[in-house]
Design a protein around this nucleic acid. Structure first.
Lengths: 137, 137
DNA sequence: CAGGATCCGCTAAGATACTG
DNA sequence: CAGTATCTTAGCGGATCCTG
């Protein structure tokens, strides 16, 4: 076995050898990679929430987007939607068991983010300084 | 303290109490939540790759999208771009240390995905059956 | 309160052609 | 090979109005 060749390749953590090409990563990202899903999930991690409560908890989200977001999360079995036939109507959203398990993943994301936020920010500034008008942003 | 009130609230895994509102989750998702970044990172987790190698390894990506993707990853300090002034030109992309750490996160995503893929798929079929023409997909 | 229905602008992303 | 430049399109997401 030849030495001298300094190729590190730090052990393939993701070999992606299971599926035809992309693991199932894209499947997850297609669900939580959008603008709002994670924020809704994070809020629901605190407990049961009603529609308006969610909208207030996630500033900037429109009714339309909130509706679409909770519908998709419900469709995937990540949250439940309970309608109480009162007047005025009352609808409660709650994480399912799977939804809660997703919460752990979100925490991993948050942890990684807070750990590297500074480094990324500095790398970005440096890159922007070296590439003044690159169009990238 | 009253009992009787069955509110579970299964321990807030993500309390999100650090930042003003959304933790740093969106920051990560804005980087890897797009259509291609993760796939490129996964491929680079195998080792150093050249431009065309990456494009072949990620079927369906266009030159333009690959360029944009690697530029952004480079800007964020997740990969390095090394140009060898040969002819024809040769450019090598490689994960940085931070890029490799991101790899662990991606593995967590892949694991969660493969664990729940079945459940999600079934939940989705059931939902679609109950809501024939809802517009959601 | 909890949404459904519309209209509409913006940008991400694909296709194509060209360059050092 | 490794890109850049340009054009075009799809659809995400915002705003607004309306209903049970």
């Amino acid at each position: 076995m030849s030495v001298g060749h300094t190729e590190v390749t730090t052990e393939p953590v993701v070999s992606c050898g299971d599926e035809h090409e992309d693991c199932g990563i894209r499947e997850v990202l297609d669900r939580i990679g959008d603008k709002w899903s994670v924020l809704v999930v994070v809020e629901l991690a605190q407990g049961v929430r009603r529609f308006r409560q969610l909208q207030r908890a996630v500033p900037g989200i429109s009714q339309r987007m909130l509706t679409l977001t909770v519908r998709r999360l419900e469709r995937d079995g990540l949250i439940t939607r309970t309608v109480y036939p009162t007047v005025p109507p009352q609808v409660e959203y709650e994480l399912t068991a799977m939804g809660h398990s997703l919460t752990h993943l979100v925490k991993a994301l948050a942890d990684w983010s807070s750990e590297h936020r500074g480094v990324i920010s500095r790398a970005r500034q440096e890159w922007d300084a070296e590439h003044p008008d690159s169009g990238i942003r």
